[in-house]
Simulated scan of single mutants.
Amino acid sequence: MISEYWMWATWLTKVILYLSVAFVVGGAFCYFLLRQYLELKESILKYITIGAGLGLISSTLGFFILIGSFANTGITGMVDPTYINILVNTPTGYIYVLRSISFALLLLLMVVKLNRNKGHFSIIESSIFCVLLLPIIFSFSQLGHVANLTLLAQILLSIHILVMSLWMGSLYPLWKTSREISGLPLKDRMHVFGRIAAFIVGILIACGASVALLLIKDFNTLINTAYGYGFMVKMFFVIGILLLAAFNKWYFTPRLQHPKFAKHLSHAILFEILLGLSILLTTGYITTVVGIE
């Protein structure tokens, strides 16, 4: 493999990592949002479990891909003991190891939860879940360009990742909800989500814009670099998903007592999922393949 292949492999693992965190955070949020619907609980728990599993795979694979890119001797370089020993004793290596351990313990927690067939999360289980999630979220600020910025910038990015994951990860459970329940119960849950989402979007935009201003220091970077072009493409998708979310909230949600509008909402959420995936793919591309110049 040449270095370009390692770069694309890193991009793929990063996108999977984004998805895994979205599954876990959004799934956990929807678990509590929809806790009265027993028919949805098990599927949401499985959704979170899949996210934890994907996170463990992407974190572990990302570590060995980084080793392979350093060794640059082909696939066998991914297990080069010399480079493993070097990387594992660096701050970057610590972050990869901590993230992998957190996902592994989170996966164990979810597997035990599913096997016990107990839908309700106890206070202890919820606390363990949150404790394991915190280092995963904060790890994003310790790798990449933001790691060289101030603590405030790192905190802003961590909050941005958290609320982004909550929103994106909620889309599949909400799509499933639109197909499993109907009428006034569906309208009520979507109305509650819409109110929370309005607050989430505000935080998302504020934190995202702040981090972007810290990274993109002048207008020339935005219009004359590959990173800037990619960032503008990402903003195009972001504006699209915001407009669609607003349309869902103000047009479909008030009419969900009628079955036909529930079906239309289901299709709209699928399109929102597609836009969300496009955002994650673009974000992974500009932070991995391109990088800020």
Rank of each mutant, 00 (worst) to 15 (best):
I2L: 02
E4N: 03
W8Q: 05
A9E: 09
T10K: 14
Y18S: 10
L19K: 00
V24T: 08
V25P: 06
G26Q: 10
C30R: 04
F32S: 02
L34G: 09
R35A: 15
L38T: 08
K41I: 10
G51F: 01
G51E: 06
L54M: 13
G55P: 11
L56G: 11
L56F: 15
I57S: 05
S58R: 03
L61D: 02
G62F: 11
F64A: 09
I67N: 04
I67P: 01
G68Q: 00
S69V: 00
A71T: 15
T73Y: 00
G74C: 03
I75M: 09
T76V: 03
T76K: 12
D80Y: 01
T82G: 04
I86K: 12
I86S: 12
G93A: 09
Y94W: 11
Y96K: 04
V97D: 00
L106Q: 12
L109K: 05
V112C: 11
K113M: 01
L114T: 10
K118Q: 13
H120S: 07
S122V: 07
S122E: 13
S122Y: 08
I123V: 14
E125F: 13
E125R: 01
S126G: 01
C130N: 07
L132A: 04
L134Q: 04
F138G: 03
G144I: 15
V146I: 15
I155G: 00
L157A: 12
L157P: 09
S158G: 11
H160W: 09
H160V: 13
L162Y: 08
V163I: 15
W167G: 12
S170K: 06
K176N: 08
R179M: 13
I181M: 04
I181G: 05
S182D: 12
L186R: 12
K187T: 03
D188G: 00
D188M: 02
M190Y: 12
M190G: 05
G194R: 07
I200M: 09
I203R: 02
I205Q: 06
A206F: 15
A206M: 11
D218H: 08
F219C: 00
T225F: 09
Y227M: 08
G228V: 01
G230D: 10
V233C: 02
K234C: 02
M235T: 08
M235G: 00
I239V: 15
L242K: 00
A245W: 11
A246I: 06
N248T: 13
W250A: 03
Q257N: 07
S266A: 12
A268T: 13
I269H: 06
S278I: 05
S278K: 06
I279F: 08
L280K: 03
T283S: 14
I286M: 15
T288G: 12
I292L: 15
